[in-house]
Design a protein around this nucleic acid. Structure first.
Length: 552
RNA sequence: GCACCCGUAGCUCAAUUGGAUAGAGCAUCUGACUACGAAUCAGAAGGUUAGAGGUUCGACUCCUCUCGGGUGCACCA
């Protein structure tokens, strides 16, 4: 509806001779008595024009022209709001549009010709996925889905590192467990990976090689095996949640020399040096962030000669620009909050347009079992394994619970609630609405022979006009705007909220309006309205990655 | 000590990013099944938006300070 109103208001401003640099905002008043939509443009422009807002609003209204049978009423209200009331005709027309566009309804074209990369999960293969990672993974997947609806060509990327210190420790951890298995008495350091999976991998190696590897101190084989096994398990877990990636970017690429023998990391150093932001002391190479007002410089190359994580991070982001992405989205957890500002600063210095980079940070997850809040800890046992959670509550509930709160709020995952089969549980409430419509349509086919495959008399929708029907129609019409809002904010939670209210409005309609017992044309019209509702629920579920059961 | 996130109804969370009387769901209370799924719906009650200042036509939202909770703050990633 933004696209409907904005140009019309814009031309009204022009013909009224009003100039303003304020953008035209279309919003939905909280209270329906202020109209279906409203704009505050007169309030915003009043100061520049040095005119009374109400009088300015009146002038704008006089220059507004709408297509026939779309707007029932326009009025000035409050301090200078302009409120619009849609005609029932317009609303029902939009419902027919849903039936026409089917699974494309809600799609847009603002991303046409644009390439977006969404990076998420990006866990190094040092252990099974934790619940915290799961939240980021689902968030990233939904954000990627949102981009895809608007015509963006989306690449879903996973960035990982299988070199580095952590992987060394992983290999060593497995080797020690293996030695244990071979009968040696070892002391297992607290700094090493404690999880049971380490022992499992060691056991496998023991089965394949017996004690043959016990003499050597070489860890390469252990590391490699651990990486393979762990990566496979990570991918399997992701698959259970329908989280996919198109591209796995290994940090190792950034250490490989190009034709001129220069690594990506080195060229970052060179480029930053040429801008005067590189210095050396204490045997290390530093990014002079003190020149940008920070307290300390940041190490790019350690005195050991190895890059610190920041350097490849910068180089990696540069590849995103070089690979031609117009929109670069990074999804990560709150523990990485201090990491990206440096990367952005470096990119800015090197002349990249950092407004293209969007960072979505999700806060942590706690789980509640029997009203008891458990805090997550990566070090200790496996109380926070994502797989265990999926086993417990299922993939749909896992996904929905992860995104049904704003990403900035600390998520309290109520495991008991997620398993409950009643309206308390939002998953069931949403899916029930879908199943109920499916059931209705099955019965409709049997009893009154209604078949949407052959009956395309969508114009019958114009017979509807009761409050419940219009409210439902309006909710359907609102869907495309919801996707855009959700995308702009990188916040799938908006979709959950919207779908919840859609389900609610449908249930009310269902309660108030008899369908199959109505006279035939009304019955068909109400079935079309139900059909359109089911379509929008499905489209929304698809973005969220939640299944749409036909019966429950 | 520094940085970031959060503080809204008894509980879990919203509030269209500065809009009109701060809204939902649980829980509580009152109603609705001889109807297509009651796994539902209608209604009631529930608030000094942690606190104090400030900015303006207008603040839960922006700025400053205080208090509380979370998370980071390595030549780890």
């Amino acid at each position: 509806m933004q696209e409907f109103f904005r140009p019309l208001i814009h031309s009204a401003l022009c013909s009224a001779g009003i100039t303003t640099d304020k953008s035209i905002q279309i919003e939905q008043p909280a209270d329906k008595k202020f109209g279906d939509f409203s704009t505050n443009i007169a309030l915003l422009a009043a100061r520049e024009c040095k005119r009374n807002p109400r009088e300015l609003a009146q002038t704008i209204i006089e220059h507004l022209h709408f297509p026939p049978d779309t707007i029932a009423k326009v009025e000035v209200a409050g301090a200078g709001f302009i409120n619009f009331y849609l005609t029932p005709h317009f609303i029902m027309q939009s419902v027919a549009q849903v039936l026409l566009e089917e699974d494309r309804y809600g799609n847009g074209s603002i991303g046409q010709g644009e390439k977006a990369v969404v990076e998420y999960v990006s866990a190094n293969p040092t252990g099974p996925l934790t619940i915290g990672r799961g939240r980021g993974g689902v968030l990233g997947d939904c954000i990627a889905n949102l981009f895809a609806t608007q015509g963006y060509e989306v690449t879903r990327e996973y960035y990982f590192n299988d070199a580095g210190r952590q992987m060394q420790i992983l290999g060593e951890s497995v080797r020690l467990r293996y030695l244990e298995r071979c009968g040696q008495v070892i002391e297992f350091p607290a700094t090493h990976y404690q999880g049971e999976y380490i022992g499992d991998i060691a056991e496998e190696i023991y089965r394949d090689h017996g004690t043959a590897l016990a003499e050597s101190t070489e860890i390469e084989l252990f590391k490699k095996r651990a990486e393979e096994v762990i990566f496979a398990s990570i991918r399997k877990t992701l698959e259970r949640l329908s989280i996919r990636h198109d591209s796995f970017f290994n940090e190792h690429n950034l250490y490989k020399p190009n034709e001129e023998g220069i690594t990506a990391n080195q060229s970052v150093i060179d480029a930053l040096a040429s801008k005067g932001f590189i210095t050396e002391y204490d045997g290390a190479t530093w990014f002079q962030t003190t020149k940008l007002g920070q307290e300390k410089d940041k190490v790019l190359i350690k005195s050991s000669g190895e890059p610190s994580y920041r350097l490849p991070d910068i180089a990696y982001h540069i590849t995103k620009f070089e690979r031609g992405f117009n929109v670069i989205v990074n999804v990560f957890g709150a523990d990485h909050i201090d990491e990206y500002p440096d990367v952005l600063e470096a990119l800015k210095i090197l002349g990249y347009d950092t407004t293209r980079v969007k960072v979505a940070i999700n806060q942590f997850v706690t789980t509640t079992v029997d009203g008891q809040t458990l805090k997550m800890s990566t070090r200790k046992g496996n109380a926070d394994l994502l797989d265990d959670l999926i086993d417990d509550v299922g993939a749909d509930a896992t996904r929905l619970f992860f995104i049904m709160r704003g990403k900035d709020s600390h998520l309290n995952f109520d495991v008991e609630l997620a398993k409950k089969q009643s309206k308390d549980n939002p998953v069931f409430y949403l899916q029930y609405a879908h199943a109920r419509i499916c059931s209705l349509l099955r019965v409709a086919k049997l009893e009154i022979g209604f078949d949407p495959a052959t009956n395309t008399s969508h114009h019958l929708l114009q017979l509807l006009g009761s409050p419940a029907e219009l409210q439902l129609g309006f909710a359907l019409l609102d869907y495309p705007d919801m996707i855009k809002t959700s995308l702009r904010l990188l916040e799938p939670q908006k979709m959950v909220e919207y779908l919840h209210s859609l389900a609610e409005v449908f249930h009310r309609f269902y309660q108030e309006c008899p369908i199959l017992k109505a006279e035939p044309d009304i019955a068909s019209a109400r079935l079309f309205l139900s059909l359109a509702t089911r379509q929008v629920l499905r489209n929304g579920f698809r973005i969220l990655g939640v299944s749409a059961p036909e019966s429950m």
